[in-house]
């Protein structure tokens, strides 16, 4: 069912990671993604993996939940891994017809798979431990220097908040409209491609209409609550760096340095 899609999913728990300043988390995630791509050998990747697992453990989000976030990516992981295994030249381990599996290929596909997995895991840590509002807040503030370039960062953050707020509402509405049209005999499952696209109109048109209607009403409600852009606005939740954030940075930076050193100093294989 459409309802099963969860966007910006947040897993409530009390952990150090949950309590961290979202700006720090956001920046560290970006840093970590860069580092993942800089790790070129077993030693460096091993360090990345250890750090990643440590963060997962600290987040107090059950392993099962993380595995769920990996599930939809499995085909992509397998696909890229197989591709890498087949196309890298080197010491041949196994050969059949034109298919060759090399030692280098196997290693490379292992690296690639590991990288993708860690990429997903580390972004999941961010979304599981940070509420969507905290995240938009963090993004708004991290990018606030762009205001000097006359880019209104607040507007984008507001748009993102409203989108996150209304996605579940619109998903629910889509389901309602689909049921109503199905009750009038709409056939969404059979027919040619063109027929199926046409069959979507009775769903898309009301959905669009309702979305606009909601937008107008919401705009009125926001105006009545004195919304007048980002100027002079204060926030209920202040973002503050605390001891744990400095500690996290203190651990994170040497780990990154270590990974990069390992990657550069130790030969590839």
């Amino acid at each position: 069912m459409l309802k099963d899609i969860t966007i910006g999913q947040y897993y409530p728990a009390f952990s150090v990671i949950h309590a961290m300043d979202p700006r720090v988390k956001f920046l560290m995630m970006i840093g970590f993604i860069v580092v993942i791509f800089l790790a070129w050998n077993i030693a460096a990747l091993g360090l990345v993996l250890v750090f990643c697992l440590a963060v997962l453990f600290l987040s107090r989000v059950p392993v099962k939940v993380y595995l769920k976030s990996l599930k939809p990516i499995i085909p992509i992981i397998i696909f890229t891994a197989v591709l890498n295994a087949l196309y890298i030249d080197g010491e041949v381990l196994w050969k059949w017809w034109i298919i060759e599996i090399t030692k280098e290929g196997l290693l490379r596909s292992g690296y690639v798979a590991l990288r993708i997995i860690m990429l997903i895991l580390i972004t999941s840590v961010l979304t599981y431990t940070t509420t969507p509002t905290q995240l938009t807040d963090a993004i708004e503030r991290v990018f606030s220097p762009l205001n000097r370039l006359k880019i209104d960062v607040h507007v984008f953050a507001m748009i993102m908040t409203i989108a996150l707020r209304f996605i579940p509402t619109l998903i629910e509405e889509t389901e309602k409209i689909m049921n109503a049209q199905k009750s009038r005999g709409a056939d969404l499952e059979t027919g040619s491609l063109l027929q199926r696209v046409r069959a979507l109109l009775p769903i898309l048109i009301p959905l669009l209409f309702s979305a606009f209607h909601r937008a107008f009403e919401l705009a009125d409600a926001m105006e009545c609550r004195c919304y007048h852009g980002g100027k002079g606005r204060t926030r209920l939740k202040q973002l503050k760096c605390a001891g744990r954030d400095y500690a996290a940075i203190g651990i994170f930076l040497p780990v990154c340095a270590g990974i990069i050193c390992a990657s550069v100093l130790i030969p590839i294989f």
């Binding site: 509405e173 109503a180 049209q181 009750s183 009038r184 005999g185 009775p202 048109i205 009301p206």
Partner: peptide
């Protein structure tokens, strides 16, 4: 569905 018609709550949204 042709033999059992169903009108949902606030059916206005089905107009298209």
């Amino acid at each position: 569905r042709f033999q059992v018609g169903l009108v949902f709550q606030y059916p206005e949204y089905q107009l298209f």
